[in-house]
Structure formats: C-alpha cells, structure tokens
Amino acid sequence: MNVMLLPAAAQLMHIPDGFLSLAISLICWGITAVFLALAIRNAQEAFDERLIPLAGIMAAFIFAGQMINFPVAGGTSGHLIGATLAFIVLGPSLGLLAMAAVIILQALLFQDGGLVVMGANLIGMGIVPGYAGYAIYQFWQKRGGRMQLAAAGVGAWVAIMMAALVVALLLSFSGTTSLAIAVPAMLGVHALIGIGEALITVAALAFIRQTRPQLLSREGEAQASNGWIAGGIAVAILVALFSPLASASPDGLESVAQQAGFLGAAQDAPFQLLPDYTIPVLGDGGASTIAAGIIGVLVVAGLMYTLTRNLRKPSE
C-alpha cells in the first residue's frame, strides 16, 4: 500500500463515475458550463483564428508534460499536473480551455475520470486550481524578479491543495466518504504532490523567462486579466469558506476516533516523508481536522517560499 499510494494519489484527482451523487454531478456541470462558455468567448476575442490550433496543441503539451517526472525520494516521483503553469503562460481563458481538453480527452479516451462526473473533474482539476494558482501569481508577480517565481511556486502548491480540498468536499457531500477523513487525507497526500508541482512549475517558468521572456509579459492580456484576479480570489475564498461549513455535515462524526485510527494506518507511508505533519493533531473532532489542514497549508507554504528562492540561485 505504501508504495502504491503516491502514484495512486495523482489518480485521486480524476473522480470516476459512481463516486458522486447525480445531484452534485449535475450542479458541477452547470457551474462548469458557465466557466467554459466565458472562457470560449474571451479566448476567441483574444486569439481569434489562432485559437483552435494553439489551444489544441497546448492541451497536448500539458498531457505530454505530465509524463515528465523527476525522482523525489523513496521511490516516489514528482510530476506536473499543470493547471497553474497553463493559466500563467496561456492566460486564464486559454489555460482553462487547454485544461478542459486534457480532462475531457483523458475521460473519453482512457476512462481516467468519469463522463457524468466530468463537470466535477473540470472544477477540481481545471477551474479551481487554475484560478487559485493564477490569482496568487498575479497578486505577487508584479514585484518581478524572484518574487514572480516564488509567487508561481506558492500558487502552484496552493492550487493543488485547493483541488484536493474540492475533490474531498465533493466526495463527502455525495456521501461517498466521510469529511473528517477525506479532507485531511487528501490535503496530506497532496501537500507532497503539490511540492513536486510547485518545483516543476517554477523551474519551467524560470526556463521560459530565460529563453522567451516575452511569453510571460504580454501587456494587453495582463491588463485584461485584472478582472480574473478578482475571480480567482473569489473562487479561493469560496472554497476556503466551504470547508468549515461542511464540517457541520452530520456524516458519522461520532466515530471520529476510529476514523483517525483508520487514517493513521492507511496513510502512514506518505506522512513519514513529512514527519512534522503528524496525525495526532487530527484526533479530536471535525474542527481540528480543518485546523490541521490549515496549519499544514501554512507550514508548507512557508517552506515553498524558501525553497523557490533557493531554486533560483544557481541559474543566475
């Protein structure tokens, strides 16, 4: 189980059919349809007749980029998921279309993610991480230089955490898993995956900044994107608010101790890689699971900030 878990964790983003209730699936499709319609409209305005080949090939790039991995430790490897990178380099509307194409094709061709739950997967792997990562990047990147890369790293990491949180919430709302387990488990596993994502996003952006800086400084689009920052922050806040609200949901909170026990057994391996992030914190109840999640997020965010600063040094 411990060897399986991390590669499997990347799979944990693609929800298969059957794991979400029909109501949740349809609501997600509704939200997704609005975002996709807006993205199509904005992208058509911005890219005109270049849109289709550009978005199609960039989607294929993200798919291929996800194959590039690097060894982290103990037989695990880090790799790209890509929403933050796609949104930063392509802009939010084209970025979302590319991510959407990736998710749709993965479901249609490889059954990686279901069809009826596809709306939820588009929210979890495209909309939420994309806008969250992009908003954080836009908020800090204006200071330029290393801050730009650090912002991308933090954005990429938070994006993955947001995605994990959304998946956990959707699963618990559907009664497929218990919130008290799903939230810390998903966040815990993805805190590690997020580091891989952040490192590779930062390194890719550093490379692009050196070889083709004009890609990252398209004036017209940066201006148009101010509205998107607000949108992204709104999504982020919404998700953050959701999580304590949802903790009030009554699914089996009386047996939290047992849950935590089960969790401890199942999640042992990945947590050993991050020894400071310990299980006992989670032991007492719904509120502390959220608290643990937030503490974890903050700790790793600080870590990420230091790491991304260090990462830049050798190449200057």
Partner: peptide, 19 residues
C-alpha cells in the same frame, strides 16, 4: 532535489516552447 526538479522543469519549458 532542486537540481532534479530544475532539469525536469527545463524539459517542460523546452516542450512548451516547441509546442
């Protein structure tokens, strides 16, 4: 770890520019 991540990131960047 950073060096490995950097190499992988450069590959991703390379692939992106080619795309």
């Amino acid at each position: 770890l950073f060096w490995r991540a950097k190499i992988a990131g450069h590959m991703v960047g390379q692939l992106l520019l080619r795309s």
